[in-house]
Nucleic acid binder design. Sequence first.
RNA 1: GGGGCGCUAGCUCAAUGGUUAGAGCUGCGGACUUUUAAUCCGUAGGUUCCGGGUUCGAGCCCCGGGCGCCCUACCA
Length: 561
Amino acid sequence: MGRDRKSGIEPGRGVPLVDQGRVDVEDHAPDRLRCRPVRRGPGVVGHACSLRGIALCTVTSDAVTPDPDEDLPEQMRIRREKREQLAARGKEPYAIGLPITTTIAAVRAAHPDLEPDVSTGEQVGIAGRIIFLRNTGKLCFATLRAGDGTELQAMLSLAKVGEEELEAWKDLVDIGDHVFVAGEVITSKRGELSVMADEWRMAAKALRPLPVAHKALNEETRVRQRYVDLVVRPEAQQVARTRVAVVASVRRSLSERGFLEIETPMLQTIHGGAAARPFVTHSNAFDMDVYLRIAPELFLKRAVVGGLERVFEVNRNFRNEGADRTHSPEFTMLEFYAQYLDYQDVARITREVYQEAALAATGSLSVEHPDGTVLDLSGDWPQIDLYESLSTAIGEQITPATNRDRLVRLCEEREIGFHPTAVPGKLAEELFEFHVVPTLVDPVFVMDYPVDTSPLVRGHRTKPGVVEKWDLYINRMESGTGYSELVDPVIQRDRLMEQAALADRGDDEAMHLDEDFLRAMEHGMPPMGGVGVGVDRMLMALTGLGIRETILFPLVKPGQS
RNA sequence: GGGGCGCUAGCUCAAUGGUUAGAGCUGCGGACUUUUAAUCCGUAGGUUCCGGGUUCGAGCCCCGGGCGCCCUACCA
């Protein structure tokens, strides 16, 4: 055995210290000697040695000089050597300023259907990442893929590039490298659109091998190494681009309707705007704890008080709660507010914004998911009443006045879990989620929620016990909510005092009393409609994917290495 | 939070407590001027997540830890 290939230390050669004494590793158990690389501050590398799990010493690189490449898997070591070889042969491994004349997509678009074995006479310079390589003795093929998923074949022949350049290609180019190729646009004998190279250059030598393109990466690797996922799985690119299309469309739709996009604080000193547990962090400059926002609502409303009239924001919210297929600790939220509108007006705008986004992203208002679910987003979206639909489903009249004991019993009969302190409205919503939500596939506005769960919403004009609030359900998921906003500062103060009392009693979702928000409201907050829509859930509805697939880099716990 | 399952080569996966942990692709060496996951011949590649333990012997069994997935609970 001899040399421990991981550490570069030969057992028995080093004499690690144990306390003040010494131990001869050879005499004890050489097979139990463990040495692992450690980093002690910038640039200081060493090896920590242990015997039978007992730390012995840290050997710095002065004492032991391991070959830095020795730890690497063979494939990575070879790629590093190829990088060196490029330089040795006068080639830049990471060339900049390449004479690129066009894109892969443009070449494809310009020559949609050429016959096989055709020369166009058109000279181009293109670059892309190699995803497949097929080398024969004197003719080499490479499939180059661009970021947009388009592909083009590069061909290198002995006749065109000469023996030296062809050998260099075969010796130094791997799958995963970015290469530049200049030459004529042709089709191969099999009809594949190609560039017949007069010249090739390395654009970026990849030191790590790409995953095998033909077998699916497992979900964890996809999420943790999204950059790799994006390279090998065009659908990953597609999702990222769909998000861009959706967000751009949302901005366009609202801008066209007179809304101003503004940016409100992510760091907030008071926790409010929704019922959710916040992340807490600390400002050194102000020497105080601050919250990552759970909602932009209270600031957008301040802006409307100030006369910005119609405002919106598309940005991140943070909620320190569960993470599952439909919840992410950070997620993208659209909120918009318009003075003088009510919850019916903003329901219409929400539907239009959503439909325009669906068209922009998918070209259709009928969306089919991988699991076969089909969503029909077209036309007007129906409205159902929360209490009426619940009563119908249960076969018993439920109203905001139904007493709590009855609701508790109904929940218990169905084994629906609920918080022991849950208010009656919350219990009604639980029952609704149990009975009605699973049936809501196509978009539906659920209207008129209990007042005790909606502290920021105006009371209903005619129905007692409910507020002018809707939840939008799409694909059995709550996708957005809209209100006729509460703008009466006296009522608002009462509601927020109740919230603050809940918070004092240990409810860490309850809002705190935001005096400055009330002060703004006391200056005259115009009646307004307001909406919050989960953008990630829009993506989920349009793609049928889980939330972690719609977010490019979702939060993950750090793994090994 | 509770329960179940998983972690093995660069990637995707095998492997009754019992030879030296295997396969495909990738890699490396060779052949090939029209390939499409090229093909053919040859070959290398391992801290079986980490740390303990049981055993003559552990990828497999036990204990502890890490990370993930599923179910469940909680959650504007």
